[in-house]
Amino acid sequence: MLNIQLTVNGELHTILIDPAETLLHVLREKLGLTGTKEGCGEGDCGACTILVNGKSVNSCIYPAIQADGCEILTVEGVEKNPKLARIQQAFVDHGAVQCGFCSPGMIMATCALLDENPTPTDEEIRRGLSGNLCRCTGYQAMVDAVKSLI
C-alpha cells in the first residue's frame, strides 16, 4: 500500500492505494465518486473518461500512482468548473442524455475537446468524441449539443 495525493474537483485528498490500483477504482471505491462509470474496463468505451491535468483519459486503465500530484476533474466537479455546467445543460437540452450511462464520460470528453479547440467543426467534434461509445443517441444529439456551445 502507498499514499498518493490527488486534487479531485478542487479538493486535495491523500489516499492509501494498492500499488497497481486504477484511478477509476480510487474514484469510485475510495472517494465514492460514482458519477464516473465503468463500461468495459479495457479502455474501449470511454464511460470512465475524466480529466487529468486537463487531458481526457480512460480512468479504467490509468495507474492511480501516475496521477499522484495531479489535478483531476470528474463529472461531479461542476462547482469548480462552470463550463462543465454549461456542457451538462446543453447535453440535456439537445437530447444528448438518454440512458445517461455514457453521459459523464461523454461530457468530460466534450470538456477536453472544447478546451483544446473552442470552435470545432462537425468532423472535429466527432473525432473528439470518438473515444466514447453511446448506444442510445446515434451521436447526432451530442454533435448538436456541442455545436450549441460554440
Binding site: 500499488p19 497497481a20 479495457e42 480512460n58 479504467c60 486503465i61 490509468y62 495507474p63
Partner: peptide
C-alpha cells in the same frame, strides 16, 4: 516499465504481468 498503461492495464485485467514490479516512466 509502465509508460501510459494503455496496454499494460488491459493485459493486467486478463491476468498478465500480475507478478511483475512496475517502473512508471510517467514522471
Amino acid at each position: 516499465a509502465c509508460a501510459g498503461g494503455t496496454d499494460l492495464y488491459v493485459n493486467r485485467k486478463h491476468g498478465k504481468f500480475l507478478d511483475k514490479d512496475y517502473v512508471s516512466l510517467d514522471k
